[in-house]
């Protein structure tokens, strides 16, 4: 079905409400819609950073940075946290609250581990003399990983709201939605990270 069919409606003809569903054509949760739009905005932002990266890379003073093996460990941590949150969402759907709690906390711990790992990598790099201002490759590395980390911290803020919801006894539907959106956000940030990691490693 054509998703833009609604644009063809001849609204000057019909004078009725019968046949028009009460919630309109779109029935997704507004929170999910807002999140999807936000992810699109973030995608555009990283897309522009990456475009700038490619343009800048072509200029002749570009000196690639060495790759820290720790980044592989961090990637694994983020990957696991993303999977854990998905699992958390799945067990919540089956109303296993104990597993849900474990999953939620474990997901956050893995994520904090990732951020800690990233900070460690920054420390390592600076210890080896790769400062932000030495070279555009370094600058892009710090800026991209930094902005990604900030988005992760934003995710942890929403995660906190989810766990507060659980404590304060929010409705199950509400909790399911929050968890689902957390999982979605984590998958997205994992995807962004994989793209960034590939970018940093192969250029």
């Amino acid at each position: 079905m054509n998703p833009f069919r609604f644009l063809l409606e001849k609204s000057w003809q019909q004078q009725t409400v019968s046949g028009i569903p009460e919630g309109g054509e779109f029935t997704t949760s507004p929170y999910k819609v807002a999140l999807l739009f936000f992810l699109a905005v973030v995608t555009v932002m990283f897309g522009l950073f990456i475009t700038a990266y490619f343009v800048r890379m072509e200029l002749d003073d570009w000196r690639p940075m060495p790759e820290s093996p720790l980044l592989w460990l961090n990637t694994a941590l983020l990957f696991l946290s993303s999977i854990t949150l998905q699992w958390t969402h799945n067990v919540l759907k089956k109303e296993h609250f104990k597993k849900f709690k474990i999953g939620l906390v474990l997901g956050a711990l893995l994520t904090v581990g990732f951020v800690y790992g990233q900070v460690t990598v920054w420390g390592q790099m600076q210890g080896e003399g790769y400062f932000l201002y030495n070279n555009p490759a370094n600058a892009f590395f710090y800026v991209l990983t930094g902005i990604h980390a900030i988005h992760i911290l934003g995710g942890l803020f929403v995660w906190t709201k989810t766990i507060v919801k659980y404590w304060s006894g929010a409705e199950l539907e509400d909790l399911k939605l929050s968890t689902e959106l957390c999982a979605l956000y984590w998958h997205f940030l994992l995807l962004v990270w994989l793209v960034l990691f590939a970018l940093i490693s192969y250029t």
């Binding site: 609604f6 644009l7 409606e9 001849k10 609204s11 409400v17 028009i20 309109g24």
Partner: peptide, 8 residues
């Protein structure tokens, strides 16, 4: 949107 308010 309220009931009956289609996009068009």
């Amino acid at each position: 949107r309220t009931h009956g308010m289609t996009m068009m």
